[in-house]
Design a protein around this nucleic acid. Structure first.
Lengths: 198, 198
DNA sequence: AACGAGTATAGGACAAGTCCTATAAAAAAC
DNA sequence: GTTTTTTATAGGACTTGTCCTATACTCGTT
């Protein structure tokens, strides 16, 4: 569902190939909020094409495979517009890291701490990427294309990611403190009869 | 992957039926960080059973279907323990709401605002649930089971959700301000030639 | 000269997740 | 007194997403 409209959204600005969508759109512009597998992009383009929401023409090339250039149709614009007007409630949380932590009471304190520190590093990396390279690339794109309203909304999504990362870092720090200041002893009946590491 | 270990984790505390896992574990205890479809739980239990990580026995009942009570095996405990020791980096973000916002520059300001307010309400609901009912249920569970270390880690995951929701609310408020204080005019070449609503 | 990276598309296999349906009886709600 | 909910399991169909492979030529690097 979402991928279809993401593709329609990108094509509403510019005709593109599957490859462009993958590299410029999903990897670069929107990578911080939605990733897409290459194979899935091509298959979705095909599906959109049979439904008449996009259309494609072959652009011959020498020395490399012909480009299949996709553009949005009027029906595609209508479908996109209708979808955009539907409210989109924040999606359910489904977080493998939190699940891992949730299931970890049988690990010793130091392993829980290292679990948390690892996450902290990742959140930190993410935050720096969003505030640095990602932000600069977006500003550059805005200058080049002049799409300042597009850019403003994109900036909002960057700041959402940054806010989430910042708050996650604070949360991790708080958790590490709580572990250091003494977690309750292991509950009975856990998984820990399995021999410990080493 | 994750679901398998979530199930093993729950069964490491107590033998349960698929129904118990669905209602008590995934809906109630872990619903804020991982949901699971009923059909998927039963199928995963079957898979775990053929791999020898869980085992089941039928507990006959009168008047209602027999319960198939699953318990974790030693091999299951070993597998769980090994998985818990593997680091789990925070997962990639994939956020349909942010995608929607990202794709919305052709909507008029007031529709973007209502998009944001809708999200704010949902985050608010989530925050109140985590601080209120979810927290109370967890404390009750902790008192009843005496699993105070388990409970402490579970509390951490609740506070992660609460922190995320709080920061999302702040972010939304900031976005609404930015829209009110004047977003740049629509960029040319958008989707908006489609007749507006009404 | 060989090797990897970039440009470009596409199929196969599979895992994960969602939705719907069927069955069945007790208990609670209306 | 009828309807809905709760308890309990399980299959079918489907969508979404991931990973791997194949093809094919160019350009830059070692």
């Amino acid at each position: 569902m979402a991928l279809e409209f993401a593709i329609l959204g990108f094509l509403s600005r510019e005709a593109m190939t599957g490859y462009d969508l993958k590299t410029r759109c999903f990897d670069d512009a929107a990578g911080h909020l939605w990733t897409a597998d290459q194979a899935q992009i091509y298959r979705t383009l095909e599906k959109l094409s049979t439904r008449g929401l996009v259309r494609s023409r072959l652009v011959p090339q020498r020395g490399r495979p012909d480009r299949r250039l996709y553009s949005i149709t009027e029906r595609g614009r209508t479908a996109l517009s209708a979808w955009l007007r539907e409210p989109e409630p924040p999606s359910q949380v489904r977080d493998p890291f939190l699940l891992h932590l949730f299931l970890s009471p049988d690990l010793p304190d130091d392993e829980i701490t290292s679990l948390l520190s690892g996450a902290r590093e990742e959140y930190q990396r993410r935050l720096e990427h969003l505030r640095g390279p990602a932000r600069e690339e977006l500003d550059k794109w805005a200058r080049q294309t002049g799409r300042i309203r597009d850019a403003e909304l994109r900036r909002m999504t960057l700041s959402a990611g940054a806010a989430a990362a910042r708050s996650a870092i604070d949360w991790v720090d708080d958790c590490i403190d709580r572990v250091r200041s003494g977690l309750p002893a292991p509950d009975p009946g856990g998984v820990s009869r399995v021999p410990t590491r080493g």
